[in-house]
Design a protein around this nucleic acid. Sequence first.
DNA 1: CAGCGCGTCATACTTTCGCATGATTTCTTC
DNA 2: GAAGAAATCATGCGAAAGTATGACGCGCTG
Lengths: 147, 147
Amino acid sequence: MRKQVLIFGLAGGVLVTLLQWTEFHFVVLEHSVAIYGVLIAILFAGTGIWLGTRLLAPRERIVEVSVPAAVPSFAKDEAARERLGITRRELEILELVARGLSNREIGETLFVSENTVKTHCSRAFDKLGARRRTEAVLRGKELGLLS
Amino acid sequence: MRKQVLIFGLAGGVLVTLLQWTEFHFVVLEHSVAIYGVLIAILFAGTGIWLGTRLLAPRERIVEVSVPAAVPSFAKDEAARERLGITRRELEILELVARGLSNREIGETLFVSENTVKTHCSRAFDKLGARRRTEAVLRGKELGLLS
DNA sequence: CAGCGCGTCATACTTTCGCATGATTTCTTC
DNA sequence: GAAGAAATCATGCGAAAGTATGACGCGCTG
């Protein structure tokens, strides 16, 4: 968090410097407004993107989780997940496994590589004491992880 | 990441053009730079947020609610089995698949070779329209084949 | 009896899984 | 600001799973 702020401030300083420099040297009066505009635009577009990713994305994620289930058993999943030390991402992938998707398809669905899916799967299987995906799905349902 | 940069640069170019155009045509009035700045800032902050949410966090989740009624258990299995043209042996193996057993374990359980299990599995998967055992289990439950 | 469905098995081949290991990055937390 | 958790990705390897094809025996049935 501090890192972003730092980089951000640094960029701002660079911009200011650059702006003054350019203005005082070769891009004088008539273009100054344009320059200012561009710089401000860049600055605020960056801020907007930053805000969008940092602040709005998590909210969207929460919506994803809470909307679909119609909320009969959400806290239960969470409790079971927590108890087993399974991360949210792992559970997410486990759910797709239970839907019969291959690792490749899961990767495409979640926009991550197949390798990543495999990693999550392995960890989840390990935590579930399962050695195959079918077994993992079964255990997941038994333990209240999956509906 | 590259995509965003590209779009970002594009937006920048568009802005420069637009800005110069507007400046030389109808907004040359004596508005202060600050007003331009604020307007552009607002505009691009919004754009940035839009970009951030649109491009950097494209996530969706499709969740369905399947309702497997588990009341009449045996006759229904038979009916579904018959309807799908699945033999008893195939269903038997499918049940063990759903229990998370490997082909080898199934073979040992039923005293047949692993190859035989594979054959039955392939045929059953084909009749279920499944390409993976996890998918087959899911379809089996949806169709009332498996409890 | 000839044909058919079913169960059994094999061989060969391709694809997918699962495991181990290590690296990088981001975020949180103390 | 150091440390840990979490997510991401890669590579390599062996083990499963899945596909295709052919074959054999058994029981039923027209």
